[in-house]
Design a protein around this nucleic acid. Structure first.
Lengths: 253, 253
DNA sequence: ATTAGCATCGTGGCTAAGCCACCGTGCTAC
DNA sequence: GTAGCACGGTGGCTTAGCCACGATGCTAAT
């Protein structure tokens, strides 16, 4: 980039990083306009402009006469529900259950082909492999297989994997999960996958390939997930002059 | 809303509507800060704040020393590619073809059950029904069935339907398409659908139920679309401190 | 006639200084 | 104990003004 960004965009970025780095947690009171103006050597107007833009995309929230606060935020919320099946199930009035099918360490070179490349891992890098089956009201709905860079969260335990991976990452390992990408396809279930999901081989299923990222766009995990066709759907909204909702999975009745 | 929005948010909304109403088209020079400040009776600072927020979500673009311009925009671009299969196919290096299987008028009461309700149509309201099969390099990839409120685009012709519906709506009928929602599921193809798509019954396919909206959130169309599993996928990005990309379909090689 | 260079003007970028409405807090007076 | 008030800090918004940038069109040199 030869062209220098305008000051308020640089400022916006700097402030955004303060939040990503968890210097300010969700719910915290953020810097005031007057503080920012002093600390960064800009005018209060510019501070306000940068803050406004963070308010606009839901990262912050203004409360007149009080201050600026860090919001749970689209980011946090959606990533949480991307990862947290249990929350989703409970809010749909279902009882979630997780069965851990496999949990082992391996080297990147031992993983299937595209895994190491997509995770940007050298052949000797350590990975976790986790395979979980997730139930809603005792019906198996999701079969998930996930490779995780072990160096980033060395203290993962079996216990973590029966609960929320998301919590283990954010709370135990202080990882700031900043993004994810999903690719959705339709597939016919193979015999073994169908058996795990208690349906027939050849039945249709949604296959989602997802990559999760921490700060700096560094990958943290890669997962391939199978969703039983009659039990799950993805929804997304486009357009309006408002930021669009990301695609989210929903449990079907 | 008892609580009055701050001025700059009201202003932002007002400006946004100018664009939605197509008072300013894509590529046009927008109002200058000084014009806005005069026309709306606000300060230039506030005008800038409102504009900045529209720049932030990609609706406008600043060019220093020149002015503010209406961008092709996430909105326009994504909705276009939601609707325009041909563009997508061509940019994937494939040759698109469209075969019109059916085109007829009917009353809302004659349509399948959820259609009228989702379109908000009374039983006597006129609808178009359009069924199209879309090819990439002479391979059938998409089977689409669409109900359209006829009152909003009475002059649709068979010719329009062999090309771009999107163009017929926006150019011929001056409709501003402002949003859409998609729901993605996996299904097994029925015999007749499989025949149309030249695959075997029971094969997996992506089924997308979509609703499209014009200004004021009024529905314009409802479509059910089947995508051949090996030929199509949907991708979406979450997170970052930037607005997330909506889910978009992609042709597979 | 063509073109290189320059002056001008309108644009957004940014600052400075200041008033206001709003909110929480803590004190005061009942 | 509590109702009420005064105060200080916050974001909301304005006014006034300078600056850098980019387009435009003129002017002067070729």
């Amino acid at each position: 980039m030869l062209i220098k960004d305008p000051i308020y965009q640089q400022l916006r970025q700097a402030l955004g990083e303060l939040i990503l780095k968890r210097d300010f947690k969700v719910g915290d009171k953020f810097l005031t306009e007057r503080e920012i103006s002093e600390r960064f050597g800009v005018s209060r107007t510019t501070a306000n402009k940068a803050l406004s833009s963070l308010v606009a995309d839901g990262t912050l929230e203004f409360r007149k006469g009080v201050g600026t606060f860090v919001r749970p935020g689209v980011l946090d919320y959606d990533l949480r529900s991307l990862v947290s099946f249990s929350d989703k199930a409970r809010s749909a009035g279902r009882v979630p259950k997780t069965e851990l099918l496999a949990f082992r360490r391996l080297r990147a070179s031992e993983a299937p082909d595209p895994v190491a490349a997509q995770l940007g891992a050298g052949p000797k890098e350590r990975l976790f492999f986790v395979e979980r089956l997730r139930f809603a009201d005792d019906v198996p709905v999701i079969l998930e297989r996930r490779y995780i860079l072990a160096d980033l969260c060395p203290r993962l335990t079996k216990r973590d994997l029966e609960g929320s991976l998301y919590a283990a990452w954010t709370e135990k390992h202080k990882l700031a999960i900043t993004g994810a990408s999903q690719t959705i396809r339709a597939v016919k279930l193979s015999g073994s996958d169908a058996a795990a999901l208690q349906t027939k081989p050849g039945d249709a299923a949604l296959a989602v390939l997802a990559l999760g990222y921490v700060a700096d766009g560094k990958p943290l995990w890669r997962e391939e997930t199978l969703y039983r066709a009659e039990a799950y759907e993805f929804r997304c909204e486009l357009g309006g002059l408002h930021p669009s909702q990301p695609t989210m999975g929903h449990l079907l009745p």
